[in-house]
């Protein structure tokens, strides 16, 4: 995404017509761009005026139940996000937002979404290729995060950090998000696995992570896996885990 690309997202953003990943990327952009922040707040005001034409008297019961709920709801202090109601729906939505931010941060860190990087590198074609690949990956991740049956599991990693894995069996995919894994030398990499019952099949992996990669995300095919695991492998990865997992979690319920 070039700078002008992300800037032109202001209308779609003000209309909530973006997905979670784009929202996260755009909000990141907003923090660095005062002109954009001004434009967005004006467009938000404009969009709110559209609600004028939608006004409908709500059912009278709404007033009583809202005011009643309010008397029982503690308020969040300034500056901290208010906690959503702990319905499973809200929890899933919250997690999706969290994941989107982490993933978007990873995508951006990889250099794909940063316009200045693209310009500075003076290698626009390469930047474009990276951006297209990142977009495809983002679309894949978005599909997983939007799945109605999304379940999230977490495994701590032996020497620190953790991995969240969001599993959507309906689309046969999972997104693993690395949270600050311990650094490895140049002669080792992390590799993520979907592990079925031994009697059914062998662990499968989309391939090793890059040398030095300790954050970011990877999309995996779920298949008939019952566990998700993380191993440390030689650079280039292994066809099957060659070491004991440094993290493993059951992903059935």
């Amino acid at each position: 995404m070039t700078t002008s690309d992300i800037h032109s997202l202001s209308g779609a953003y003000a209309l909530d017509a973006v997905d979670d990943l784009e929202r996260a990327a755009f909000e990141r952009h907003l923090r660095e761009c005062d002109a954009c922040a001004l434009e967005v707040s004006e467009l938000r005001e404009t969009v709110s005026r559209l609600a004028d034409t939608a006004a409908v008297e709500p059912p009278p019961s709404l007033r009583a139940s809202v005011l009643d709920a309010v008397t029982r709801t503690p308020q969040a202090p300034p500056g901290r996000p208010g906690r959503s109601q702990s319905t499973s729906h809200a929890a899933a939505a919250r997690w999706r937002r969290f994941a989107a931010v982490s993933v978007a941060a990873g995508v951006l860190a990889a250099g794909a979404g940063v316009g200045t990087w693209a310009v500075a590198s003076r290698n626009v074609d390469d930047a474009r290729r990276v951006a297209v690949a990142a977009q495809q990956r983002a679309a894949e991740i978005e599909q997983v995060l939007a799945a109605p049956d999304l379940k999230v599991f977490t495994t701590p990693i032996k020497d620190g950090g953790s991995v969240n894995v969001a599993v959507a069996r309906s689309v046969n995919k999972a997104v693993a998000i690395l949270n600050d894994l311990p650094g490895l030398g140049d002669d080792q990499v992390y590799q993520l696995w979907m592990i079925p019952e031994a009697s059914v099949g062998k662990p499968a992996s989309p391939g090793p992570l890059a040398i030095g990669q300790t954050t970011g995300s990877q999309v995996l095919t779920v298949g008939n896996a019952v566990q998700f695991g993380v191993t440390i492998e030689p650079p280039g990865g292994s066809p099957q885990p060659s070491t004991d997992p440094v993290g493993i979690v059951t992903i059935t319920e």
């Binding site: 308020q75 202090p77 901290r80 208010g82």
Partner: peptide, 8 residues
Amino acid sequence: EAWRSAAR
């Protein structure tokens, strides 16, 4: 939610 996070 607006009530809860009004301080923001």
